[in-house]
Amino acid sequence: MILEVAILNIKSGLAADFEAAFNEAQKIISSMNGYVSHQLKKCLEEDDKYILLVTWKTLEAHTEGFRASTEYRDWKKLLHHFYEPFPIVEHYVEVESCNNKA
């Protein structure tokens, strides 16, 4: 599994509009081949800052499958105009995990 991580800085005052657009956009990404799950989290310290976490089966499912798809054009149209600056997207693999609530 691959974790895609993007820190999203939204133009000031557009957070509610971004969240509404993301509600539509998440239907696009969740329908893609190789998609597993996603979470959008809002920063407590900065009103216009979010983190998007998307789990993919493979790196290629995101970089080649989703980004090369016609659906990605719809995703871009819904969301990309909200970002300032444009987010850096990184991919991570699990090294170790612990689910112990000790």
Results as ranks from 00 to 15, higher is better:
77 K>Q: 10
38 H>N: 07
51 I>T: 10
54 V>E: 01
21 A>D: 00
76 K>I: 14
74 D>N: 10
89 V>E: 04
91 H>C: 04
54 V>R: 02
81 H>I: 10
97 S>E: 04
17 D>Y: 10
100 N>L: 13
69 S>Q: 06
83 Y>V: 05
84 E>Y: 09
57 K>P: 14
75 W>G: 07
95 V>L: 12
102 A>F: 10
42 K>V: 08
93 V>D: 03
73 R>L: 12
59 L>F: 12
98 C>T: 14
40 L>F: 08
58 T>M: 07
63 T>N: 10
84 E>I: 13
53 L>Q: 02
17 D>K: 13
74 D>C: 09
90 E>G: 07
19 E>L: 13
24 E>K: 15
39 Q>L: 14
31 S>F: 09
71 E>N: 11
16 A>P: 13
84 E>W: 08
44 L>W: 05
46 E>M: 14
12 S>L: 08
100 N>V: 15
29 I>H: 02
24 E>Q: 14
32 M>I: 13
6 A>D: 01
40 L>M: 09
76 K>W: 08
7 I>Y: 00
47 D>E: 15
81 H>P: 11
35 Y>W: 04
33 N>Q: 12
17 D>T: 09
24 E>Y: 12
99 N>S: 13
55 T>E: 02
49 K>A: 07
9 N>T: 07
43 C>S: 15
35 Y>D: 05
61 A>T: 08
17 D>E: 13
28 I>D: 03
34 G>V: 11
8 L>A: 01
12 S>I: 07
24 E>M: 13
46 E>C: 14
54 V>Y: 01
27 K>C: 11
40 L>G: 06
94 E>R: 13
63 T>I: 15
6 A>N: 00
18 F>N: 09
78 L>Q: 01
92 Y>N: 01
6 A>R: 08
59 L>R: 02
50 Y>P: 12
55 T>Y: 05
63 T>M: 14
31 S>R: 03
71 E>S: 15
52 L>T: 00
2 I>F: 06
